[in-house]
């Protein structure tokens, strides 16, 4: 997929919860407590167990859909209407996190399907301007025209 430079510089909403990581594609920006050996998303200010400051940790956005739904009310933040959201079980960290789903996957979504993370223009930021948001997209199979 081609993403031009202009799109790459669009602000990220919400700030600080995902990042581009070069060849591997986007990742989630979480936290890790080396003392308690626990991962968190988003990165908390303190480890809720030992109150040490967690390290920043890039978390893989690969996972499977734990639950999903399609929101058909007036969409907030300039999101598409309707739009889909869900909880994703992240394969690497074992965390279960809320996220947007790819609008173009509506109709093909199912619990248990594999997803991967995207970080692309979606909706508006707090000032009403274009921005990028992280969202999960059904993992494309080999040979799919994506």
């Amino acid at each position: 997929m081609h993403i031009d430079n202009q799109q790459d510089t669009l602000p990220l909403v919400p700030e600080g919860i995902a990042a581009e990581a070069g060849e591997t594609g986007p990742v989630l920006t979480g936290g890790h407590c080396p003392h308690c050996r626990r991962d968190f998303f988003p990165r908390p200010r303190h480890c809720p167990q030992c109150l040490q400051p967690p390290e920043e940790r890039q978390l893989s956005g690969d996972g499977v859909i734990y639950s999903y739904t399609v929101v058909r009310t007036r969409a907030p933040f300039g999101l598409p209407q309707p739009y889909a959201v869900g909880f994703i079980d992240l394969s690497q960290s074992g965390l279960r996190i809320f996220g947007l789903l790819n609008q173009s996957d509506i109709g093909r979504l199912a619990i248990g399907k594999a997803v991967c993370l995207k970080l692309e223009p979606l909706g508006l930021d707090g000032k009403g301007g274009p921005c990028r948001r992280p969202y999960f997209s059904l993992a494309e199979r080999e040979g799919d025209d994506a």
Binding site: Y66, S67, T69, A75, P76, F98
Partner: peptide
């Protein structure tokens, strides 16, 4: 809240429970 900015509205969090 970060999840609100990702489109979480109250009916959605209950719909997600319903699906499960």
């Amino acid at each position: 809240e970060w999840d609100t900015q990702l489109g979480l509205v109250a009916p959605a969090s209950f719909a997600l429970r319903a699906q499960r």
